[in-house]
Every structure is written in structure tokens, then in C-alpha cells.
Design a protein around this nucleic acid. Structure first.
Lengths: 113, 113
DNA sequence: AATCGATATGTTTTTAAATACATAACGCTT
DNA sequence: AAGCGTTATGTATTTAAAAACATATCGATT
């Protein structure tokens, strides 16, 4: 059975900046309060996630994720207010995109059989 | 500078069926009349393109590409009428998607800076 | 039947990405 | 200052995709 799929993301100078991967990572960070725990949930390597966070923070006017090392619980990670705003924007965008998909799926003959 | 990107494709049972890659391939086949020449233009390996064509034909009610081997000119490839129809559908879809992008790019705060 | 240029197909090599592993650094708490 | 759990970072290994290479097959034309 055939399905129409659409994926959207934001690029910074031709390289991926924010998309499904980072979006899911931020959701897990928000839930777990730690980068390592978020990573565990997602079956993603810590290194990859860490680099993702660096990139997100570096190419924004404000950090999306705040990382803290040391301290009582060893440290932790949280999504900033600014990061939460971007997450919401992306969610809203995805909603519109899904509406387009639903509409188009009815028309496309390719999807038949 | 940040940009919103969207990519759409059609899946058959979870695996890619028709998207930007096959679409470009069909365009080149149409132009060149041969799979090997199309591949050369695209810097794609013949094997990959050949497998793509097999998949496109196998999972459709009708072949999108007709491959001919032997004969005066050794053979050749052409996009079927059915294939042309799918190409047009995909082009039309991309047009609508681009309209959505243009509209959304004005709204997204993430794109600022 | 010999030729030619394209399709068809298997094997090997290269490449890049992801993962795994190891270890240092941090700072609050006790 | 010792312990803890997390962030930070380098190195090595694994994996999968892509490319490169080699060769067989086909069939109209001559």
C-alpha cells in the first residue's frame, strides 16, 4: 500500500539545523531532564546528540538547550524558553503539513495500487 | 542564513518508492533515451538506477520505464505514458508544496537570524 | 555469424556514518 | 577531600551505502 510522506526541516547555510531528529531530542530532554537519559530513550548515541545541541545553540541568537555539568545530581539538561518556542513553531508547521498531505492523498492517482 | 525545506515522496510498504531521486532519473531518461546515459548525467551508478527502475515497475500496475536490450542501437530506455502521468502528478504536488513553504517562511520566527 | 551499444548482474573496493568504548572534567553534597 | 552522576571529548570499531570493476546477455544490422 502506498503512502504520501512529507518531511520538513530548517537548514542553516545548506546544513540541517532543526528537523524531526532535533525535535524528538528536545522532547526527550524536556521529559527526562538529562541529555544522557534522553539519548537512552531514543537509541541515539550521546556524541551525536551532544553535537546536535551544540549546533542548535551555536546557530541561534539564544540557546535552545541548557546543559549543566557537575553538582548534586551530576548535572542535567533542560530546554530553554526560547527552545520551547521553536518546538511549538515546528509542531504548528507539522500540523499544516499534515493537512496538506491528507488533502493530496485523496487526489493522487499514483497511490492507487 | 536559515531556510525552510520540505521534501515529499511516496512510500510502498514503508520503503521509498517515488521521490526526488526517481523523478530526476525519469527526467534524464526522457531526455537521453537511455538508462546508461541518464545515469552518466546524474553521477549515479548504473546499478542503483537499474534497481530503481525495477522497483518502480514492479510496484505499479503498469511500467513507468520501458527498457529494451539489443537491437540496432544496443537498446534503450523510455518513460511510458503511465510514467509521464506520474511525473506530472509529482510536479503538481511539488508546486503546491512550494506554495506552502513560501507562505510559512514569512511566519516562522526560527528563520530569523 | 560478426559487430555494436545498451541492458543485466555478480563481485570487490571505497567511503562515510554511526556506534561503541574509554576516560577526563565538573561541582554540589556529605 | 571523597563520592556521585552527568557532561565533555578522543579513539577505535562496526555497519551500511555507494561506487568501481568485470563480464555476460541481447537482438537488429551488416
Amino acid at each position: 500500500m502506498k503512502q504520501l510522506k512529507i518531511k520538513c526541516w530548517i537548514e542553516e547555510d545548506g546544513e540541517k539545523f532543526y528537523g524531526p531528529g532535533p525535535h524528538e531530542l528536545l522532547k526527550q530532554i524536556q521529559k527526562e531532564g538529562s541529555l544522557s537519559k534522553a539519548v537512552e530513550q531514543m537509541h541515539m548515541s550521546y556524541k551525536k546528540a551532544w553535537a546536535m545541541v551544540q549546533r542548535l545553540n551555536q546557530f541561534s541568537e539564544e540557546a535552545l538547550v541548557i546543559l549543566k555539568k557537575g553538582g548534586q545530581h551530576g548535572g542535567g539538561a533542560e530546554v530553554s524558553l526560547y527552545g520551547l518556542g521553536i518546538m511549538k513553531e515546528y509542531d504548528d508547521l507539522q500540523l499544516k503539513v499534515r493537512q496538506l498531505i491528507a488533502q493530496e492523498e485523496k487526489l493522487l492517482k499514483v497511490l492507487k495500487k
